Simulated assay, not measured.
Amino acid sequence: MTTSTPENRLRSALEALSGHSPLVHCITNTVVQQITADVLLAIGAAPAMVDHAQEAPVFAAAADALLVNTGTVAEGQVQAMPAAARAARDAGRPWVLDPVAVGSLPVRTPLAHELLTLGPAAVRGNASEIAALAGTGGGGRGVDSTDTVEAVLDAARDLSARTGAVVAVSGERDAIVSAGRTTVLTSGDALLARVIGTGCALGATCAALLGSSRDTDLTPHDAVLAAHALHGAAGTLAARGAQGVGSFAVGWLDALDTLTPADVLELVGLQEQAAPA
């Protein structure tokens, strides 16, 4: 059995990833497909980008986990996303919703709300995206958040309670929220926000950790927390030797490839918050 401390559960989730090499099916935006695949390979997972409406549900039912990212919503993806999510749910495969730029945009916003009804194991977004999904905000400035993580914690808790999903809010400090549990993670570096695809690839890493821990006693909260810790720790380490955003991007990918679970724990801070009364 996994011991009870958050640190030990995080370590166990990262160890499960290294021992499993999960196949992660990504329906993601066209801007970040390569960096997402590179990140999955760096952490020891196997990426696949299958977004044809007929093929996506077949592949989703066979993969270890699925990512649905609404960053680009071409017509074929709009059809493939709910079909794949439904197939993953019916096959017992965890899937992650990354509601990129939801709020006022007329295609992705109702699509994301439809996807919420299909049983995601986790929802990962910035504070404005989470507020928009929860019905307490109108979205951010494109893909950038105009809200703070702390300001949307109640909305994240409500969204988790309504959907049963772990809700992860990314920002200067990340918050991972599930039934009766909120974990605040301190990690990373400001340069992460200046490299394309780091957030979107985080959604894929959440899927990888969920897929690799599916047959363990770890919870989805543990898996999503571990994904955020791994990305943040890699950002902290990469920033130490970076001369700018280019060298940081390469160093971040290298760190994802080389960090051990013990390294990650040394580079992040965890704070468990008591459930609201």
Rank of each mutant, 00 (worst) to 15 (best):
G171K: 03
D254A: 05
D147H: 05
T72C: 14
H231R: 15
Q77D: 13
S178V: 00
G188N: 11
L40P: 03
G197Y: 15
C200R: 12
L185R: 05
L41M: 08
A156H: 00
P99C: 10
T186M: 10
D174T: 07
W252D: 12
P110W: 10
P120D: 09
S212C: 05
A233K: 11
A53M: 08
A60R: 06
A238R: 07
A207V: 02
G125T: 09
A151R: 07
T146D: 04
G188P: 10
M1I: 15
S145W: 05
V123N: 08
D217T: 10
V264I: 08
T219P: 12
A207E: 03
A238N: 08
N126H: 04
L97I: 11
L209E: 06
L253A: 03
L159H: 02
A204L: 10
T146E: 02
R157V: 03
D222E: 05
N69M: 07
S213Q: 01
V50R: 04
P57C: 09
Q33P: 11
A151G: 06
E172Y: 05
A134K: 03
G119K: 11
Q273L: 11
N126I: 00
L209P: 01
A168P: 05
D189W: 03
G244D: 15
A239I: 13
T216G: 00
T136Q: 11
L111C: 10
L116S: 11
L225N: 03
S12I: 01
T109R: 14
L115H: 15
G232R: 06
V78Q: 14
V102L: 12
L230Y: 02
V195M: 12
V166T: 07
A46C: 08
N8E: 15
A274M: 00
T5D: 11
R9A: 03
G211V: 02
L210N: 05
N69S: 11
N29T: 13
A56N: 07
V177K: 03
G140K: 07
C206I: 15
D147G: 01
T260D: 13
L115C: 10
W252V: 08
A56Q: 07
A121R: 12
L153D: 01
L210P: 01
M49S: 10
L192T: 07
A227D: 00
A193Q: 15
E129N: 03
G203D: 07
I176W: 04
S247T: 13
I130M: 04
A134W: 08
S212N: 00
T205K: 04
P261A: 00
G232T: 04
A46Y: 05
A56E: 05
D154M: 02
A132E: 08
A255C: 07
T182V: 02
V268K: 09
G244K: 14
A63E: 01
E272D: 06
E15K: 02
G171E: 00
V78I: 14
A249N: 13
A179T: 14
T260F: 03
A161R: 10
H52G: 14
A84I: 06
S213L: 01
A45V: 03
G44H: 00
